[in-house]
Amino acid sequence: MKIKRKKHEVQYPQILNLDDDFSLIKRFIEGDESTFNVLMLRHKEKVRNIIYLTLNNHELVDDIAQEVFITVYKNLGRFRFESQFTTWLYRITINKCKDHLRKIRIRSIFTAISDSDNEPGYTTSPEDKDTAEIVRAGISKLPEKLRVPLLLKDIEGLSYQEIAEAVQCEIGTVKSRIFRARESLRNILKPYERELL
């Protein structure tokens, strides 16, 4: 009987500890739904920040983060343990952000004023307000495909590998995009060279 039960068990990597993401997911699959809350508590701020940095809008963060975690909850049973949980989670997050941006673009076709016109910018500490404001304005001018990898790297501190998996492209592309983003930002900030650079 023991042998029979082993055959039906999912084969997980041996290196895992009880409290890491994989073990929590395993427990979730086995029926312990409380582990999902642990996963959520562990990663929610990262997810919220990625959304905030990608969309440049703090009002939408919680709604989209909620969508992300609902998607995770629905699909966690099918997690294949082939990559890190965070890689999978960030990919879902970036995809949700892309979906939202796509909706905004479609909506902007039918409305005279685009939603982005009313969106608040990134927040910053009051003492750096002037400098930060200029840089933020510069960053917001970058195209999405350059802006997102740059912010995921410089603000969230994700590795090139993690960024590549999240935005679904090659590491070389991420490297190139981050460099191009910095070059573009430098060119945008050139008029303020004395104050900033």
Partner: peptide, 8 residues
Amino acid sequence: LTASSVKS
């Protein structure tokens, strides 16, 4: 500059 301008 990027890291300092945008806060979480």
